[in-house]
């Protein structure tokens, strides 16, 4: 398992684009927000938390097909499926690698981008916390979507279409935590829900993803 995690991390670093592309996309989304709604500081500070969550989610979505597509093309998935490593574990590890290489940089960068959107001071802490708790769910749900669309010709667009509805609860609770935090309200309620969703998906989704991947490899 450690070997698979290390390999995915090394590949992400060597191939480039692992950390960089997602972050750059996140930055672009954040920059586009004032262009589309206007530069008024009070408006920006009101929508900052939500806009940052949306940007992070889109950046995450963009890189999902990398979780499995390359391994499918070069036959690694077939070999992994016949290896002693259970597919459930392999998918959980690959989701973890995706989180480490794509989502974690977003979490780190989000407060910096928050400055651009005039995020209120108490919001920085809650935004970081909510992203830290919520993004693992995005990665692990994304691995399920990647397994569903592995080997399909127009997989990329379809993947987004399938995954976005599954992201709704995470986005709602995550953005709610950040927004309440930014407004100085108590955010522990939605944070607990967000944590619950993340814990639930980490516990259950690898099994669904592995079942789907076995079906897709046939």
């Amino acid at each position: 398992m450690r070997a698979l995690l290390l390999r995915d991390l090394i590949l992400a670093i060597r191939a480039g684009g692992g950390f960089g592309l997602g972050l750059a996309f996140f930055l672009i989304v954040v920059v586009l927000v004032p262009f589309s709604v206007g530069p008024a500081p009070e408006l920006l500070s009101r929508i900052a938390a939500g806009a940052l969550w949306l940007g992070a989610l889109l950046a995450c979505l963009l890189s999902l097909d990398r979780i499995l597509a390359l391994d499918w093309e070069d036959g690694t998935l077939d070999l992994l499926a016949t290896s002693p490593l259970p597919l459930e574990a392999a998918l959980a590890i690959k989701a973890l690698a995706h989180w480490l290489t794509t989502a974690l940089p977003l979490v780190v960068a989000a407060p910096l981008f928050g400055v651009l959107l005039n995020l209120p001071a108490p919001g920085f802490f809650w935004l970081t916390v909510s992203l830290l708790v919520g993004t693992p769910a995005l990665s692990i749900i994304g691995a399920f979507g990647a397994a569903l669309t592995v080997g399909l010709k127009r997989g990329g667009l379809l993947l987004s279409l399938l995954v976005v509805p599954l992201y709704v609860p995470t986005l709602i609770f995550g953005a709610e935590v950040a927004r309440r935090g930014a407004e100085g309200l108590d955010a522990t309620g939605p944070l607990a829900m967000l944590g619950g969703i993340t814990a639930g998906t980490i516990a259950l989704m690898p099994f669904a993803s592995a079942a789907v991947l076995r079906m897709a490899l046939k």
């Binding site: 709704v168 609860p169 709602i172 969703i197």
Partner: peptide, 10 residues
């Protein structure tokens, strides 16, 4: 189902 509850909350 999760979304239904989330949306109610939101």
């Amino acid at each position: 189902v999760l979304s239904r509850y989330a949306v109610n909350f939101w």
